[in-house]
């Protein structure tokens, strides 16, 4: 099986240093288990391709293009000429707009299906591949998909192999002159301002009025910090269960019954109907 891994120019979330986004490094590890993998980067700098070699690719192509131009066209053109069975991409970029739209646009341009959020892949019988897709809270969806296919990688996939300086040195990068590209399509860049962290909405599956008020006003944790001393174990148990229900991890007493949360539904634990 032949795999192309799409590489993007990311930034480290804390330091802001150029890095290969983690999910793309995970994609490289996943690709290594499937067959012969090559990398593909479109952008002004070669560093994502270089980093990808360090994470395990032997070869990557770097298509130079001006900053800010749309990578979808050159990516799709190159993929068409290489005709890999699987195109792997990260789930979202990292450090840019982070819309996660590029893989979809590439898939649309290629006219091949896209499967998001893979955590594991195995080649199945001819022309088919088995993909485990991550859903919230450890639920998986196992898909059998016809190739060629574009697949994005979920952060819960096996961690990337560490960058190895020696590998980065050994691998090769093919530099390909820029294809003439359209500048990023669509609207002018949106207005930007410094990010302000806002309190998260609480999962309100019941609880007291005060709790839900806090959910709205942002005094986050359920009931604030509360320490209970000198309680009987029985009262303590009641407090614990009430808390667990308030934060929505334990089904209410009247619902499915202890420990029998309806497993297959993603939201059953958050929100049980009475």
């Amino acid at each position: 099986m032949r795999i192309a891994v799409l590489l993007s120019a990311g930034r480290h979330p804390v330091s802001g240093k150029p890095t290969l986004p983690r999910t793309e490094a995970q994609a490289i590890r996943m690709a290594a288990g499937l067959g012969a993998a090559t990398g593909l980067h479109v952008g002004p700098d070669a560093f994502p391709a270089e980093a990808a070699l360090g994470h395990g690719l032997d070869y990557a192509a770097h298509i130079a293009c001006a900053a800010g131009s749309d990578p979808v066209g050159p990516l799709a053109a190159r993929i068409v000429s290489d005709a890999p069975d699987i195109v792997l991409a990260g789930r979202r970029g990292q450090g840019g707009d982070e819309t996660g739209l590029v893989p979809y646009a590439v898939a649309a341009r290629l006219g091949v299906p896209i499967v998001p959020d893979a955590v594991a892949m195995r080649p199945a019988t001819d022309g088919l591949v088995e993909i485990d897709q991550a859903l919230p809270k450890g639920v998986l969806r196992r898909l059998v998909v016809r190739t060629p296919v574009v697949v994005t990688v979920h952060p819960a996939a096996p961690p990337p192999l560490p960058f190895a300086f020696g590998k980065a040195r050994r691998g090769s990068i093919e530099r390909i002159a820029a294809a003439p590209t359209d500048l990023a399509a669509g609207a002018p860049p949106p207005e930007e301002r410094p990010y302000r962290k806002r309190p998260k909405m609480m999962r309100a599956a019941g609880g007291s009025a005060a709790d839900r008020l806090k959910a709205v006003t942002g005094e986050a944790t359920a009931g604030g910090a509360k320490v209970l001393d000198h309680q009987t174990p029985e009262d303590a148990a009641k407090e614990v269960l009430a808390f667990l229900r308030r934060v929505g991890v334990l089904a209410p007493a009247s619902a499915a019954g202890p420990g029998r949360r309806p497993a297959a539904s993603e939201d059953a634990s958050r929100h049980a109907t009475s």
Binding site: H55, P159, P160, P162, F163, A164, F165, G166, K167
Partner: peptide, 14 residues
């Protein structure tokens, strides 16, 4: 192990 094989201990990757 680390520089050529990407094989430091698993827990040190991060």
């Amino acid at each position: 192990q680390t520089l050529e094989l990407s094989a430091p201990p698993q827990k040190s990757f991060e």
